[in-house]
Design a protein around this nucleic acid. Structure first.
Lengths: 177, 177
DNA sequence: TCCCTCTATGTAAGAACTGACATAGTTATA
DNA sequence: TATAACTATGTCAGTTCTTACATAGAGGGA
């Protein structure tokens, strides 16, 4: 039984073999929108996956002091990943700092709260614009079964989330005027 | 400088003085919708707040083996809380297990994915119904400045989130048929 | 030529969080 | 009368995550 981070790594490796460095890059860019990990976390987790036999690697020399290790998922890793995909997700505790601040906002100067929410609205609108651009770059709409569908569905979720969040910020600003 | 958990505790104590046990209960029920903490975490954090002079306590005997400690926020604690409220929230890394599963869903049996999303939709619809009931129990709509406004705004955010999430689950089910 | 960025892998200290253990009086229910 | 649930505080081991440190070659720009 692997941690969720382990499955995140396996999900990346199921698409193509990669070095730890490349996995870390994925955990910033496409996967990073819904699962984040630093390279120090990834190196540790890869060791665990390796001892568990869920991944294997092949050393190739590239730039850098050490050899580059190209990891790939094993049949055992793929089997565990497949099983995990449709298992119910573990409930994560809610921790939303902005809502917590809102809970305590009755103590603050309304003008400062207004500034806070105006800033947050700008953040969400910027992300919304970024996601819209990425949506354009998809071209067609991938259908289920295509590996690209995962990214497409995640993007749709992100769009919905940012819209909800921006709406809530606008409602807050409305309440403050 | 306190951790976010420290400010969550201060936000509870700013409304009224409470024992550690009562703070833990709040971190389940109203605050738990946006900030969670177990009692073991709270006890540790209260010690830090105490040494920092942000809270004080008064021992009273109640049921149980030890005396009950009633904590209250100090003027220093209130000052730090006020400052924190309108400071920009620290960006938390995104970690959404369901979206991660979606990213890897191309590997799974469509029928199983459909079951997963049907289950998740039911969860979000149940929460939506729960929030709607709580909305009714509010009676009037609190305005900014009223401590009750924080809970009201948080509830509105929760409603928006659950609607977005349920919509996305419905879209996914649509894609799978 | 110098410096910065990118590629590349790793360690380690510490913070944050989880889950189990430990103890014990009061109150309501079967 | 037994027992379960609730009140009440605390410790501790282990996991997860963050941040900084450490090393070093390749390639590009000032």
């Amino acid at each position: 039984m692997s941690s969720t981070l382990g499955f995140a790594i396996l999900a990346v490796l199921a698409r193509s073999e990669r070095s730890g460095y490349e996995i870390a890059a994925r955990m910033r860019q496409p996967v990073g929108y819904f699962w984040t990990a630093s390279h120090s976390q990834i190196h540790g987790e890869l060791q665990k996956l390796l001892t568990g036999g869920l991944v294997g690697f092949e050393a190739r020399h590239g730039p850098g002091p050490q050899d580059k290790k190209i990891y790939r998922i094993t049949p055992e890793g793929l089997a565990e990943l497949r099983e995990w995909v449709t298992a119910p997700p573990r409930a994560r505790p809610e921790r939303d700092e902005l809502v917590l601040k809102t809970y305590a906002s009755w103590l603050a100067d309304p003008a400062e709260v207004r500034r806070l929410f105006a800033e947050q609205l700008a953040v969400h609108e910027a992300r919304l614009a970024e996601y819209e651009r990425e949506k354009e770059s998809f071209g067609g709409e991938p259908v289920f079964g295509d590996p690209a569908f995962g990214g497409w569905a995640a993007l749709r979720c992100g769009l919905g989330y940012e819209r909800h969040r921006a709406d809530w910020c606008r409602w807050m600003l409305d309440q403050l005027s």
